[in-house]
C-alpha cells in the first residue's frame, strides 16, 4: 500500500505545497478586484441601457457565460500578447503568466458579477427609491443607505457561489504554467513520482478553504439579516 500512498509523505509534502497558496490567493483577490470594478460598470451600462455600450455588453456577457473558462484563459494567454504587439507595440511575451490568469479570471468574474449586481438591483422595488427621495435623501444617499443594503442581502448567496468557484477554478491556471497550489502539486508529483500524495494535499486545501468560505458567508448572511424571525 505504501507504494501508492503513505501519510508520511503527505506530511512531508504538505508544507512545501502550502508555500504556493499565496499565489492562489493573489489570483482570487486580484481577479475579484478587477471583476467587481468592471462588473459594476457593466451593470450600470445594462441597467441604464446606454446605447451601443448596452449591446456590446450583452454580447460580452453572453460570450463569457457561454464559453469554457479554460478556453478564455488560453484566448487571453495567446491573444493578449498579439493584441498588445499589434496595437501598442508592447512585447508581453516575457510577462509572468500570472498576469494573464488575473486578466482572464477578472474578465470572467466581471461578466458574472454584472449579472448578479443587475439582478440584485432590479429586485428592489421602485417604492424604496421613492420613499428615500420622499424622506429628503439625495439619489446617492438613497442608493447607499436604502438600496445597497437590501440588494447586498439578495446577491450574497450568488456572490458566495461565485467566489468559491473562482477559488476552485484557480487550479486551471496550472495549465499555462502558473505555480499555484495545483501547478506546484503537478511539478512535485512529476519530481517525486508520488502524484497521489501531492494531489491529496491539494484537494484537502481546496476542501478546507471551500468549507471556511461557506462558514464565513453564513456569518455575513446573519449579519445582513434585518428581518428577525
Amino acid at each position: 500500500m505504501s507504494e501508492y500512498f503513505s501519510f508520511e509523505r503527505v506530511i512531508e509534502y504538505f508544507p512545501k505545497l502550502i508555500t504556493s497558496f499565496p499565489t492562489t490567493l493573489i489570483i482570487v483577490v486580484a481577479a475579484l478586484a478587477v471583476g467587481i470594478v468592471l462588473g459594476i460598470i457593466l451593470a450600470f451600462i445594462r441597467i441604464h441601457k446606454i446605447p451601443v455600450l448596452y449591446q456590446l455588453s450583452c454580447v460580452y456577457v453572453s460570450f463569457i457565460r457561454g464559453t469554457p473558462q479554460i478556453i478564455q484563459l488560453f484566448l487571453v494567454y495567446y491573444g493578449m500578447p498579439l493584441l498588445f504587439m499589434n496595437l501598442f507595440g508592447i512585447d508581453l511575451n516575457r510577462v509572468d503568466a500570472l498576469l494573464f490568469v488575473i486578466v482572464a479570471y477578472g474578465l470572467n468574474e466581471s461578466a458574472f458579477l454584472s449579472e448578479i449586481f443587475r439582478g440584485g438591483l432590479s429586485a428592489i422595488p421602485s417604492g424604496q427609491y421613492e420613499a428615500g427621495y420622499a424622506c429628503g435623501l439625495t439619489k446617492i444617499q438613497t442608493f447607499r443607505r436604502v438600496v445597497i443594503p437590501q440588494a447586498a442581502r439578495i446577491v450574497l448567496p450568488s456572490v458566495e457561489v461565485g467566489i468559491v468557484l473562482l477559488f476552485q477554478n484557480t487550479s486551471m491556471a496550472a495549465s499555462i504554467g502558473v505555480r499555484d497550489l495545483m501547478g506546484r502539486a503537478s511539478l512535485m508529483g512529476a519530481f517525486t513520482k508520488h502524484y497521489t500524495e501531492n494531489y491529496f494535499c491539494t484537494a484537502v486545501v481546496f476542501i478546507v478553504v471551500s468549507i471556511l468560505l461557506e462558514l464565513l458567508f453564513n456569518l455575513l448572511n446573519k449579519k445582513l439579516q434585518y428581518v428577525k424571525k
Binding site: 502524484y195 494531489y199 484537494a203 476542501i207
Partner: peptide, 14 residues
C-alpha cells in the same frame, strides 16, 4: 470542495 480540474488531472494520472 474539490475543483473539477484537479479531479480530472489527478484521476487521469492515477
Amino acid at each position: 470542495g474539490i475543483p473539477i480540474y484537479l479531479l480530472l488531472v489527478a484521476a487521469n494520472l492515477l
